[in-house]
Amino acid sequence: MVEKLQQLGQRTLELFEKLGRSSLFLLQTLMGTLEMLLRPRLVIAQLHSVGVRTFLIIIVSGLFIGMVLGLQGFTTLSDFGAEESLGVMVAASLVRELGPVVTALLFAGRAGSALTAEIGLMKTTEQLSGMEMMAVDPIRRIIAPRFLAGFISMPLLAAIFSVVGVIGGHMVGVGLLGVDDGAYWSQMQAKIDFNEDILNGIIKSVVFGFIVMWVALFEGYDAIPTSEGVSRATTNTVVISSLAILSMDFILTALMFGDI
């Protein structure tokens, strides 16, 4: 019984310890990020590996999600004779929810896990300690450019996802199912508000990018320096950031769109 209590206490303390460490880590990273504005070449290299390499998966999934939305929306809306509203339905669901959320989940799976593995392996092979020996701060040299690159990429990727999805919905709705081309666009333009829908969607994607980068980089930096530790850190990145994205999405949606 006493042993159980001790274990519980230890777990709780470990949780708080990790939370504290990750907060301090975030603070140091943010301070390092400001410095990155003076050294943009480091960020460009990371934008390539974080942003450009996620580009293709975003385009392909955006296209298919848009097409599915077009198909599903058409079947439901045609029951009410409201096929003309297909454009609004596709655009609203993409810009408000699916764009930021699905992009963030894919981003966590594609870029976040790769970053965790990369940094965890750097730690395991003692490259990070090597840098410290040479008086190079690994947080500034390694972590900060990756953080900034992810922070920049995420809203751009989410915007690309939404646009490709809207085009995918247009392909299916107008091209295959015969919704009127003018109605698709004009109803969309009439109902989608720039401040209300699009800006809020961009804010969401910025928040999600921040979360994914924080979790991924911290898990890598904090990984136990063994092969098993790195594998566990990589799994943690995907699980924790996905859960954080989905729960944060609920909170943000309630604040932005729900009149609570």
Partner: peptide
Amino acid sequence: AIFFMAMQVSNL
């Protein structure tokens, strides 16, 4: 893409 959303998708 952001520009496209502003001009083509929304009422801006």
